[in-house]
Nucleic acid binder design. Sequence first.
DNA 1: TTCTATCAATCTATCAGTAGGTAGATATAT
DNA 2: ATATATCTACCTACTGATAGATTGATAGAA
Lengths: 183, 183
Amino acid sequence: MTAQDMKHRILETADAMIRSRGYNGVSFREIADAVGVKSASVHYHFPTKGALGAAVARRYTATFMAALGPVEEAPKSATAAQDRLHALARASLVEENLMCLCGMLGAEIADLPPEVVAETRQFFEETIGWLIGAFEQGDWAASPAARRKLALGTLATSEGALILARTLGDISVFDDIDLPRPQ
Amino acid sequence: MTAQDMKHRILETADAMIRSRGYNGVSFREIADAVGVKSASVHYHFPTKGALGAAVARRYTATFMAALGPVEEAPKSATAAQDRLHALARASLVEENLMCLCGMLGAEIADLPPEVVAETRQFFEETIGWLIGAFEQGDWAASPAARRKLALGTLATSEGALILARTLGDISVFDDIDLPRPQ
DNA sequence: TTCTATCAATCTATCAGTAGGTAGATATAT
DNA sequence: ATATATCTACCTACTGATAGATTGATAGAA
């Protein structure tokens, strides 16, 4: 196994654990155990917990944005663009019962190392930017302020729906929640 | 100072700390330091962390429901009922930059002691019940399914808006997010 | 009144377990 | 031989939790 592979496995494992239990609910030892190495080896690849958390968030954002696809290729229908984002949230709930990483980190934001805070903000800014960009290119005639409002409302609804569905232990709760729609 | 007072101060302090940093981001010693006692004294009033967390959540739910008021006296307008709940979320953000306690606990739900999980669920069920009850008594003609959907959507939007506004460090983000509205 | 017994509440001191993190030995592969 | 990656072993600080001493107030007996 190459170092890249190990780094990748650590990131994947940490991602899943943080999305389930939260940043402060996860330790180097637990991650190491799950990967099958010693915690010192995790420190070799990621010197501090903040560095690991930031790397997890950076990778998550990249994967998420890749799944959304280039904004130029976003659906022309505003609702379809919203649905594409919402479907990613739903998939993480249905497939693994996990939060959105940055929804989790956002809740814990006041107790996170600065580099993790920065990456969490970056996720929200990129995601909101993608939605606004999709709206601009689409067929929805609206002001920039209206576009921003709908982007924020879409993301807030998705994140909140994940929390409610996980807490109530019922995926149908997620499906019963409608996104705000363009007027 | 009576024992009741001390219990009350511990609950208040723990409430604020959990709503800022999360359940796993708070320790008995930090709570004790903030109150001005030793951690053993906190254990005297609340034997375990789970017991303390559950008591904090129970008190939070009671306070929240009291602020909403009896459902019989809820606004007859569905949107006004939604706004009453949303205003409570906004107040905790504006006045103390705090999450809704159960939004925070809901994010951490997979890493919480069972008694805290139960109280967190209770909060959501009571709050959703209040919204549905208000809709039933109000002037909005809709099916039970539609009422439930709007109640879930309202709560999800409020919780998500708190996360986004706190993460982006901008209260205007909260204010830019519109609640879903009755059709 | 004064002494004494009792009780709740807090304290000091400590426990075992775990946290993030580090030093240095060891293995592996080029 | 060197560089990379993992390991063992350990550190200090902190975690939730407990035992037992101490405090202070109260109530009844002298």
